[in-house]
């Protein structure tokens, strides 16, 4: 067990953990940040998506020992960026969230896109979200919501 310092959602934190502990468990169990979900524990579903130093990762695959000195941003914090807040609103308005279990990961993954590619096409959005599985929506409204937040405002179809 070691002490690890990291900055989570803008706040410095020190956690005491085994270096191989999953960042996911440290966030959920030590820091009480349960917005980051576990859907598979093997990097497939993206429900555990977080940003480490602005880079999208699966928190279920990151050993916390590798986060020393890093910035970690989770669903609880990323809404502070107005572009991400707009993305969150678009998800509600367009119907991008149903059961909601994939939604935090989806929004974290989309935020990485919204910040770097303001005018992403639907095809780019689909590729950027390919690591985030959703079983409820068929992705139609998720893609629409991200497109809207990207300022494209165009939809691929749907009602």
């Amino acid at each position: 067990m070691i002490d690890i310092e990291l900055v989570v959602n803008g706040r410095s934190q020190r956690v005491h953990a085994h270096p191989l502990a999953r960042l996911l468990d440290v966030l959920r169990e030590q820091l009480g940040l349960c917005g980051t979900k576990e859907g598979c524990g093997e990097g497939e579903c993206g429900a555990c998506s977080v940003l480490i130093d602005d880079v999208l990762v699966n928190a279920c695959l990151v050993p916390v020992g590798q986060c020393e000195g890093s910035r970690v941003d989770t669903i609880e914090g990323i809404g502070a960026d107005p572009r991400v807040a707009a993305l969150q609103r678009a998800f509600v308005d367009v119907g991008g969230a149903q059961c909601g279990i994939c939604t935090p990961g989806m929004i974290v993954a989309a935020s990485a896109l919204v910040r770097t590619r303001p005018r992403a096409t639907p095809a780019e959005i689909r590729t950027a979200l390919a690591g985030n599985l959703c079983r409820c929506t068929g992705y139609v409204r998720i893609v629409d919501a991200v497109a809207q937040a990207c300022g494209a405002g165009e939809s691929e179809g749907g009602a």
Binding site: E44, C45, Y139, A159
Partner: peptide
């Protein structure tokens, strides 16, 4: 597992037109 029971991702699903 999700790695071998394969459900569609965003790039495997078409635009779906509902009326």
């Amino acid at each position: 597992q999700m790695t071998n029971y394969i459900i569609p991702t965003a790039v495997d699903t078409p635009p779906i037109r509902v009326e």
